[in-house]
Structures are given as structure tokens and as C-alpha cells.
Design a protein around this nucleic acid. Sequence first.
DNA 1: CACAATTACGAGGGTCGTAAAAATG
DNA 2: CATTTTTACGACCCTCGTAATTGTG
Lengths: 283, 283
Amino acid sequence: MFELAQLEQLLAFAKHKTLSKAAEEMHLSQPALTRSMQRLEEDIGVPLFERKKNKLSLNENGKLAVEFAEKIIFDVHTMPERLREFDRTRRTIYIGSCAPAPMWKLSHELSELYPELALSTDLKGTEEITRGFDIGKYDIIIMPEPTDKTEFVCFNYMTEHLMLSLPPAHPLAMYKEVSFNDINGETMLLFSDIGFWHDICAAKMPDTEFIIQSERDTFRSLVKLSALPSFTSDIVTDQVEEHRIIVPISDKEANPTFYIWIHKSKKSKFSRLCEALKDRISP
Amino acid sequence: MFELAQLEQLLAFAKHKTLSKAAEEMHLSQPALTRSMQRLEEDIGVPLFERKKNKLSLNENGKLAVEFAEKIIFDVHTMPERLREFDRTRRTIYIGSCAPAPMWKLSHELSELYPELALSTDLKGTEEITRGFDIGKYDIIIMPEPTDKTEFVCFNYMTEHLMLSLPPAHPLAMYKEVSFNDINGETMLLFSDIGFWHDICAAKMPDTEFIIQSERDTFRSLVKLSALPSFTSDIVTDQVEEHRIIVPISDKEANPTFYIWIHKSKKSKFSRLCEALKDRISP
DNA sequence: CACAATTACGAGGGTCGTAAAAATG
DNA sequence: CATTTTTACGACCCTCGTAATTGTG
């Protein structure tokens, strides 16, 4: 049986048309290549080359052999790549979420339930999250609505309450609660990595100008230093907001319940999680 | 890079479930297999096995690796087979003919024109010959009719005259010529390997009983010794038929002209033959 | 205790590189 | 005369087999 190295050498020769050049690419001496190709011919049992005194070229057999070799070498190279990728996905839980708060909570719980697995999290709008779920990019997704599709299992995970964070001097600070409509037209500070909240903001407050900040620390400094309103929620408890008035937002869109979707086919992989959530199964 | 031998060893292990059995099939010692599989894991970069103290089994990666390996090893084994077949067809001219006489003539001419190539001849009815031509089984076919298909090139090759060979005492021996109709109902000797002549006989002499003989020498002896009529032709000059009366057959089916068909795509391969026949091209 | 997997170590075979030869444009 | 292919020869690396170890049912 011939060796893979010989097929790669054949491809190198087909590419460079001379043994010397091919040998260079293969980090091999010319004589070694000569013998290696002679062995290949012997092993296969048909002549692959046309030999002139100082010229070697592929004959018809050789040209066909190159086509075979290309396919085999391609498969041989993809095999380890695909296996490594497969191994990686096997050791990682891929989460897609439409909001940060439930993702933090779920990440925390998963890392305790599955300390041997790595987590990969992705924060996007609902549309992109469901698309990624459909193509198998995510094992688990967090959505602001349940699903009744029979191929998914769905859990009621948590509810978040969005609130307005205001400097005490702000006119809205006196209200016990506000609606998106009240805020519409304001200029606001907004953190960028917030998933579907972007869509909510755009839909419910079309006239509001958002000053978007992607650095969390910078965002927090801005909130402290500026007189502009910003959002916070009942989940973001760690965020110290001194000298700010917190006002609940009444709209139902501001108080979403988040649901966890999992493919039924992956139930066994996430049996521990499903067990932990079994009381919250939806519907 | 891993080696093909390692993939085959992996397949052997997948088949036998233990290194010892696999080693036996591979004509290798167990320790050698152990190390070989360890190298395979290293080369690919992911664990393929689940190791218990005295039990080795494939993990999920390993099962996927087996699928890859099966495909690669299959391709590796087919490559030499296909190349040998390709080489053989390249060195052989495959001829299909519906009659023996033009096949002998063509074989003779081809072996002089292409002394470096082997000949493979096949004698069948017209239907089977054209079918074989369509599927590429034959490079050249000999047919009793021309073709006007543009993808073929066609030559008028030769005409053969079928004749009746009779013992002098036979009633038909006095005629200057006969028709198939005159012979219909006789009992006749017939050589078996005669291609489309079988169809002619069956069609034109449905009531004739043919005593079919496949051994040429036996057939000739029978012709000499029996008082039964048989066929001969103007081409079969070497056949000494003492004490036999030769009567021409008048039907047009008994005097066919044979045509050579060649795929235009193979014109270059048979350029010498086409050159030799260029005066007889048949539109 | 038979069997399976793994480790240690020495031997052998195969492939490589260097050197040299032969041929070409 | 630079370039290319091929052959000859010695060296080295790599894999193999034997032997020994550990562990299991």
C-alpha cells in the first residue's frame, strides 16, 4: 500500500512539473522524491510517468492518479479539522440569548451544573437568535416568549423589570412609574450589548436619541457624571447607582418573561439542567 | 500527519472491539497497535478512545473518526483498482462486431496499425453491439448498416456474400442460385459464433431446424461427413470444402455490407485507422 | 488465571541525504 | 555548464516484537 506522503508528493509534482521544485516544497531531496515516485508506481502497479532522459512528466494514468490523490488528500486534511471541531462543540455549551440578565443567570447555573464544559454565549436580537437556533449554532436559547413547537422543550425561566434611572433633578423623577411613551423624545444613555432591548427601544421610543456606549465601565461613568436618563432593571443589583432615582416602567414590553428553549434531541445532553428546571416547564 | 495503516487499524479495532483481535487481523502485536492508536490520537489532536483499566472503546470522536476513515480507506483502495482498469483500457482496443468475417479482417489490420495495443473482440447480435457501443464498452463496432448520427464517424468497410454449401447429391445443388425461402424447412448445420447471422437465419428461415455446433473443428468435420447443407461465404476462403457444391444466395440479407462505427471523440486515438479508411468514409 | 491494555527496551528495516553519473538544451 | 533525473551507499530514525507490568472478571 502506498503512503499519504507519496500522494502529496505526486500533487506537488503535478503542481511544479519538476521533481526538484516539488522536492523543495516537500522539504525533501530530489533523489528521495525520485525513489518515492518510483515506489508509488510499483505500489499502484501502473506507470504514472513518461520518462525522457532528463524530463519527467505525467502520462494519462498519472493525470487520473492526481485527481484521485487530490480527493484523498483533501479528505485526509479535513478529517482532523472536522474532528477537532466536533470535539470542541462536544465540550462546549453554546447559548444564544436575547437579553443579558437571563444569560448571566443561566451561565452561572450551567457552569455549576456542568463544570467540565465550556460556555459560549451570544447576545443578539430575537430574530438572529432563532435563526442560529434553527441552524444548530446554539444548544440553548433564551427568548422573551415561549414556544409550542413540539420539537422543542421550553421552560419559563425568569421575569425582568426594566426601570428608568434618572438624576434627581429630572422632571420624570417625581413619577411613581412611567411608560415608554413618557420617555419618547428624551436623549438617553444606552449600553450597546443588550440584545432584543435594542428592538424594544427602537419600536417603543422612535423619537428618542440614544447615546450608545459599548464599554461597560465607560457607560457606568457616563451614567454617574451626566444628567441623562438611562435604563436599569431589578436584576442589575450589583450596579451602584448613587444619586439616581429609579422609576419602574409600566409597559408590558418592559417586564418580559424569558423562556429557555432546548431541542428535544439535546435533552439527554442537558439532562441535569432539565431536571433542575422541571417545575418550570412551559406550557 | 497520520498514516493510512493507522486508519485501517482504527477500522479493525472498530470491527473487533478489542486491540488483541484487531492486532491479529493486522498481523501486528498488541503493543504495536496500542502505540499506533496513541499516535493517531496525538496526530489528530483529539481523544478517540475511552480508556478503562483493561478496556478500550471508541468515544464519540472515535466513532466519527471511523466514519471518516472508512471513506478514506475506501477511496484509497479504489484508486489503484480504477487506475489499473484505466491503464488496461488504454492499452486495448475493444471491438464489437455483428459478424465474424469483417471482425477477422479488422483485427488483422488493427494489429498491424497498432502493434503496441491489445485487441479485445466481441461477437454479438446488432442490438447488443449497439448497446455496448452506447455505454462505451466498445471503441469500434462493425454493423451491417451505416449510421448518420453526427457523433459517430462511419466507414464502408466490406461486403460479404453468404453461400450455401451442399453435398453434390442435394436437390438444391443443381441451382445457379437459391433464396432463403428455398432453404426454409431444411435441416442445416450451423456454427454458433456468427453474430447477427443468427438473427437473419431465425427471421428468414423460421421453419429450418439448425444443428448448432460451437467447436469449429467439430463443425468442419460434421460438414465433411454429413449430407446436410451448411453456410459458407466468399470471405471464408481458407475453408477447404471438397466434394461440396457452393451456391450463392440471392436475398439482399445474404449479401450485407459492413460498416465501421467509431465515436468522433475517439478519432484521435484511432487516427491511423481513420487515415487508412479515409476513402471509404460513409456519410 | 486467562485476557486486555500499557510500558520498556533492543533489533531491524526502510527512507533519507550525500555523492556521483548520465543526459539535455 | 546549469539543470534534471537516476543510481549507489551509508546513516539514522521509527516502528516493530519480546518481555514484563498492571488490572479485571
